[in-house]
């Protein structure tokens, strides 16, 4: 059996949303949606789990805090204690107020950059990558729903096509995958 991809093209995000709901209620699996901007409320309908990037950012931030605490302790308390302006240098804790700014900055630095690097990594974004949006108009004003026939054994292709047509798709395109 040849693998077939159906692209339903919409020109309004709300029409696409109600169409996606109708397809889901018939048991159709929607592979992906390409849009020029985020469509709110789409993720639960097509089964996208909430991203865990913010949890990752929290741990990167904690790493930054710990690193800053270790760095200030090692450099100014342990390795070469310096008496600066009579400020106590016997223990990290006594000198801690002066270390707060650097600790804060390193926390933000690690959380922000760690999160952005993870984001680029999981989204597979890097200079020179080939974009895989099926239609050039999907970054301008069209919203494109991608349905793979091989994933939808229980629903006939004709049923998918007629649902798409009846729920407001302005165009339906096919592509055969080898």
């Amino acid at each position: 059996m040849s693998k077939k991809v159906i692209y339903g093209v919409f020109d309004d995000e709300e029409v696409l949303l109600s169409s996606a709901k109708a397809l889901r209620s018939k048991g159709v699996r929607i592979k992906d949606v390409f849009s020029p901007f985020p469509i709110h409320g789409l993720d639960p309908i097509i089964g996208i789990k909430p991203t865990r990037l913010s949890n990752a950012a929290f741990f990167y931030g904690m790493f930054g805090t710990s690193f800053a605490i270790w760095m200030t302790w090692y450099m100014l308390i342990s390795d070469w204690p310096m008496n600066i302006g009579g400020k106590p240098n016997f223990s990290w804790f006594e000198n801690m107020p002066a270390f707060i700014p650097v600790t804060f900055e390193l926390t933000v630095f690690c959380a922000a950059h760690g999160m952005v690097l993870s984001y680029l990594l999981v989204n597979k974004l890097y200079p020179g990558r080939k974009p895989h949006n099926p239609d050039l108009r999907s970054t301008d004003d069209k919203f494109i729903m991608e349905i793979q026939s091989s994933e939808n054994k229980r629903v006939t292709e004709d049923e998918i096509l007629s649902t798409l047509r009846n729920t407001g798709a302005i165009e339906i395109n096919h592509k055969d995958l080898k």
């Binding site: 390409f34 996208i48 991203t51 984001y119 890097y126 999907s138 970054t139």
Partner: peptide, 14 residues
């Protein structure tokens, strides 16, 4: 553009 395609998952993470 780093090869951005605008898929639902990319937008959700964005």
């Amino acid at each position: 553009s780093f090869g951005w395609s605008g898929s639902a998952k990319q937008w959700s993470r964005f």
